[in-house]
């Protein structure tokens, strides 16, 4: 029997094509980790998977009552519930993906110190579950659009996957960066909830971007601004789609993803030693 597979273990591990090959070899593990997350998630709960529907729905109701009715935030001449829901749809994907990827290495430290596999698999599989949540939340959106008689433009529907991809890149890129820092400094774990809360207020989720007036360019630096603005434009016809803004968001999220992966790969070799 001739060995077909040779591994050379050396001190410095540089980024290379073999990393991608390796990730591909272990692709089934991504599936198994996400499968575990889904299986375990609603164990020992009374209403199980219904939580996936309740969470975005109740958040929408609460926001509508407080921000829409009591505060009276403008909503680009669209009923506030559906206006805020489109924002929440992407925001919840972003915030939960960000917080799960950031903590995934620490919560799995027992596995990291005992078994080898490409570490990128852990944060990546943490995001897979979020796609499922997104799909469930989209069903509610469809129901609301029927209720409020909104017909999305064809471009609006076709662009949704791209928006989702941008959200995925932005949250995962940032998440990888924070996950790697979290290995050494657990401060991330405690600072992150505040960070996410602040981000919610600098992202036009509960208010339209137009409210910022001449400072709206500041909001544009946040890739989620472009995503949510475009989604509202495409689905609810609030404004024409701002392609320039969307392009900027796409560029920003690609940069975030590249920086995230690079930083993650560089510090990856210390993970098992210092976690």
């Amino acid at each position: 029997m001739e060995a077909t597979h040779t591994t050379v273990i050396q001190p410095k591990k540089t980024l290379s094509l073999s990393d991608i090959k390796e990730l591909w070899k272990y692709r089934e593990l991504i599936y198994f980790f996400s499968w575990k997350d889904i299986k375990v998630r609603y164990k020992q709960t009374l209403i199980g998977g219904l939580w996936a529907i309740f969470q975005p729905f109740i958040t929408m109701v609460v926001f509508t009552v407080f921000f829409g009715r009591l505060v009276g935030i403008p909503s680009d001449n669209v009923p506030y519930p559906i206006f805020v829901y489109v924002g929440l749809l992407f925001w919840q994907f972003f915030s939960s993906a960000l917080s799960d990827t950031s903590n995934t290495l620490v919560t799995n430290q027992a596995i990291i110190t005992k078994v080898y596999f490409p570490r990128l698999i852990l944060p990546l599989s943490a995001v897979v579950t979020k796609f499922l949540d997104f799909a469930i939340a989209t069903i509610i959106l469809a129901g609301m659009m029927i209720y409020y008689h909104y017909v999305p433009s064809i471009v609006g529907v076709l662009i949704l996957p791209i928006l989702l991809l941008i959200t995925f890149f932005a949250s995962t890129g940032l998440g990888l960066f924070l996950a790697a820092i979290n290995v050494k400094y657990r401060d991330v774990r405690y600072a992150l909830p505040f960070f996410i809360q602040i981000l919610l207020f600098v992202t036009p989720v509960i208010y339209p971007a137009s409210i910022a007036g001449k400072y709206s360019w500041l909001l544009a630096l946040n890739p989620m601004t472009g995503v949510i603005q475009t989604a509202r434009a495409g689905l609810l016809h609030t404004t024409p789609i701002n392609w320039e803004l969307l392009g900027l968001s796409a560029l920003a999220c690609v940069v975030m993803m590249i920086v995230g992966i690079l930083y993650f790969k560089i510090v990856e070799r210390y993970f098992a030693d210092i976690i």
Partner: peptide, 30 residues
């Protein structure tokens, strides 16, 4: 491959697997 060496090298001709601790990754709810 769990941790990297500081110096030197190791060459392994073949697939490697380890039994470092039984039950790693078992999930109690499953």
């Amino acid at each position: 491959g769990i941790t990297l060496p500081t110096e030197g090298e190791a060459i392994l001709h073949g697939h490697v697997s380890s039994l470092l601790e039984v039950g790693t990754g078992f999930h109690p709810e499953l």
